[in-house]
Design a protein around this nucleic acid. Structure first.
Lengths: 181, 181
DNA sequence: GAATATACTTACTACTAAGTAAATTTGATT
DNA sequence: AATCAAATTTACTTAGTAGTAAGTATATTC
């Protein structure tokens, strides 16, 4: 795969995580990569094409990653999930879902669809894991697995957002709280 | 208080909740109110002045509301808090914190400061409530009150964001899950 | 009744954004 | 060396966006 193209995607991802989809421009990318904005339009005719590609890659990465966890015990899989975004804290980055969801109504339709698919994939995987763990008495909680998945996912996603604002131990605290399952 | 001014604030609040601070313009407000954009600049010279005013009003409203709950038993206060944003679901609105936090790095400094103050106020109140409830055996949870406050706040805030994307029962589910304390 | 403040409008500026058409360069193939 | 397609720049358009300077009608104060 072309170097410029993947650099655009890499930078685009970072920008979505740090300032959000609506707050970065092709100029931000072109300046950083020392190319012209038209060069980005060559690879991604419209900004939403880039947005869709970035979401797709995240979905792919999630599927690949969880596949490598297959067979691990549920506690470890859960812990892996909870620690998935640890590398983002220092830069105060968000996960893609936490970055794009709040501005969902302003996103182009193809990105909305892709984002919805990503969220559903994550929740489906997490619900199944919690269900398995509950049935085998590895986990212990009173909510339904689906509700528990909603809560865990939401709390984790939002802890990255709060980390941006408070810049304190909110992320680590929530992690520890959630792991106590 | 002036009618135009409060209409600007009302509409600004709605727009922040629905599309976010960076995605609405003075044109959106001026068109809706049948005034010129300069009229908005008359009341709020810069957009951040409007943003700050809206956050301040939310802080004020939170303080006023929780003050009216003083004396109520902890379970009821907690339930009131959890149901605070029920009226937003139909329109897929976010709470102010959930709307502004993800784009924190793009906000003008005065808004960042104000937002941080609001988050701290909410977390302080919630932590105190959870602490009181735990000490009197009204609530039962294993985390520290501070961590539990982080989790509850984050899960609730993010459930409104997920409601935008999924448009299903995620908000109600999380509410029920959280109330089981 | 003259002066002044309030609440705007008109008409603009400076700037930024996404996007495009056409020309040019680069690099591999024949 | 000539050719051709892919990659990229040049130079531009269109459409916003925040913000401002100057003017005006209406009410309020002196």
């Amino acid at each position: 795969m072309n170097d410029t193209r993947s650099e655009i995607i890499r930078l685009g991802s970072e920008l979505i995580r740090s300032v959000g989809y609506n707050s970065f421009s092709y100029a931000d990318i072109s300046k950083a990569l020392n190319i012209k904005n038209a060069a980005i339009h060559y690879y991604f005719p419209s900004k939403s094409d880039l947005g869709v590609e970035i979401i797709k890659r995240n979905l792919n990465a999630f599927n690949e990653l969880t596949k490598t966890w297959e067979g691990l015990d549920y506690k470890l899989q859960f812990s892996n999930y909870i620690h998935m975004h640890d590398s983002f804290i220092g830069n105060h980055w968000l996960c893609i879902v936490g970055s794009l969801s709040p501005s969902y109504d302003t996103l182009p339709e193809n990105m909305q669809k892709e984002l919805k698919g990503l969220v559903n994939t994550i929740l489906k995987w997490l619900t199944a894991l919690l269900d398995n763990g509950l049935k085998t008495n590895i986990f212990s909680f009173t909510e339904t697995p689906r509700t528990k998945a909603f809560i865990v996912h939401s709390a984790l996603l939002s802890s990255l957002q709060m980390n941006k604002v408070l810049k304190n131990d909110v992320y680590k605290s929530i992690q520890e709280g959630l792991l106590n399952i």
